[in-house]
Amino acid sequence: MGSGSGGHSNEGYPNYAHGPVSEAIDPDVDLHVPAQRTETAGAHKWQVLGAISAGGAVGALARYAASVHWPAPAGAFPWAVFWVNVAGCCLIGVLMALVSEGGRGTRTHPLVRPFLGVGVLGGFTTFSTYALDFTELLEQEEAGTALAYAGGTVAGAVAAVWLAASATRAVLARTAAS
């Protein structure tokens, strides 16, 4: 996934190798990161938007497949969307540790984050369906399930991103040290 060292051409992309790089808080796009501020400049914009669009379609299809294969009956805990969101949060933790943190943003191909992070994982996970499922559970007078789902998803999501990012960072640190 890394560029630069692989020898493939970065021509046509803005030069990301110079200037101060602060680390992104928002993994979709963080304008505090100079390279992300300029990634929509010129014709490169259409490559970035195309990568996000294609990734979004892939991610959403995977989410749709999960909801078709594991449909939640009315009033039941929406397990498919729960696991989709928790898995997506786990994967963004791995991805950002690999391609953004520790200055890796400058050494990664500029379309990796847009395609995998903004597109695939952003399209895979969803907040709106989560919110709708919660209100529908309330309407079906399943308040206990609704609260367990709302709280369980937040707890699962934050735990997943934390554990996944920590584990990936630990592996990267060990690899770098050896």
């Binding site: 808080i25 749709y64 997506g88 992070g117 969803t126 907040f127 709106s128 997943a160």
Partner: peptide, 27 residues
């Protein structure tokens, strides 16, 4: 399918939200 599962599903995100929360706490 088009506007709900597709459009709204992809406009909104849980992965971005969770990573931001982690980064804010860590910083």
């Amino acid at each position: 399918a088009l506007l709900g599962t597709g459009l709204c599903g992809a406009v909104t995100t849980y992965s971005t939200f969770s990573y931001e929360t982690l980064r804010l706490a860590e910083r």
